[in-house]
Simulated scan of single mutants.
Amino acid sequence: MADLSAFPITRKWTPQNPDILQLFAFPTPNGVKASIALEEMEIPYEAHLVTLADADVKSPEFLSLNPNNKIPAIIDPNGPDGPIGLFESGAILIYLAEKSGKLMGNTATERAKTIQWLMFQMGGLGPMLGQMGFFVKFAGSEWEDKRPQQRYVDEAKRLLGVLDTALSDKDWITGAYSIADIAIAPWLNALNFYEAKDMVNWDDHKNLGAYLDRFMARPAVTKGMNTPPRP
């Protein structure tokens, strides 16, 4: 049995089976990237619910694995050089793809294109939609000055246009289903939660609806979107 005692997080979230990968997450757009990838790649794992409350994400135990206090994070007892802990959803997706040999292309060119679109999500789509959500649904929506909101709405529209054009001749963002789609699609789905589809003219992007429908219909996505289950 693997010894994960070097990871203080296991004192608060105790593995039932320390021999398999441990996922610490909450089902947000970033959190489900890891669970969906694990399901798609058929990597055995154990999911631990880490709520977004300070008592969890700012606890000493969680900060010992991710000093940036954000989900998801993982411990892989079967890492390349022994047990390894990782945070940042994009880094986790690349790690899992390399570990499994799946969903990052079969050639160096395909791998580069996959990482390109993954970085598009990490550096653009995710942060911009997340900030838009703050100004549309959360505390920022109460601000009388709507210029910050409009800034993110306009950028969201631009990024959605980039995606819509890229998907005009293919089912998936690089052609073949990949970790880039696992990163992108949950953030598109978040527009439902933010109740912002009309605001960003979703229906004007003719390819995005079908793309998101294809993604959400995958069995691994159905399971991963609810792993770990919300309390």
Rank of each mutant, 00 (worst) to 15 (best):
D3I: 07
S5M: 06
A6T: 13
I9R: 01
T10H: 01
W13G: 01
N17M: 14
D19A: 15
Q22P: 12
L23I: 06
F24P: 05
A25H: 10
T28P: 03
G31Q: 09
V32K: 01
K33A: 11
E39G: 07
E40P: 08
M41K: 07
Y45K: 02
L49D: 05
L52F: 07
A53D: 15
K58M: 09
K58I: 00
S59V: 10
N69E: 07
P72W: 08
P72V: 15
A73L: 07
I74M: 03
N78Y: 09
N78T: 05
G79S: 11
P80L: 15
G82N: 10
G82R: 09
P83S: 05
F87P: 06
F87R: 10
E88C: 14
G90K: 06
A91N: 09
A91T: 08
I92S: 09
I94K: 04
Y95H: 08
S100P: 09
G101I: 12
L103S: 13
T109V: 07
E110D: 08
A112N: 14
A112F: 15
W117F: 08
L118D: 05
G126V: 05
L129I: 14
L129G: 01
L129N: 03
G133L: 03
F134M: 12
F134V: 08
F134H: 15
E142N: 11
E144D: 10
D145E: 12
K146Q: 15
K146I: 14
Q150Y: 04
R151C: 10
V153I: 15
V153C: 14
E155M: 09
A156P: 01
A156N: 09
R158P: 04
G161A: 10
V162Q: 11
D164R: 03
A166Q: 15
L167P: 01
S168H: 08
S168P: 04
D169A: 06
D171F: 06
W172Y: 13
I173M: 08
G175A: 13
I184R: 01
I184H: 02
P186F: 01
W187C: 04
L191K: 02
N192G: 13
F193C: 04
Y194N: 00
K197I: 02
D198W: 11
D198N: 14
W202L: 00
N207R: 10
A210H: 07
Y211I: 11
F215L: 12
R218L: 00
T222Y: 00
T222I: 13
K223F: 14
M225W: 04
N226D: 08
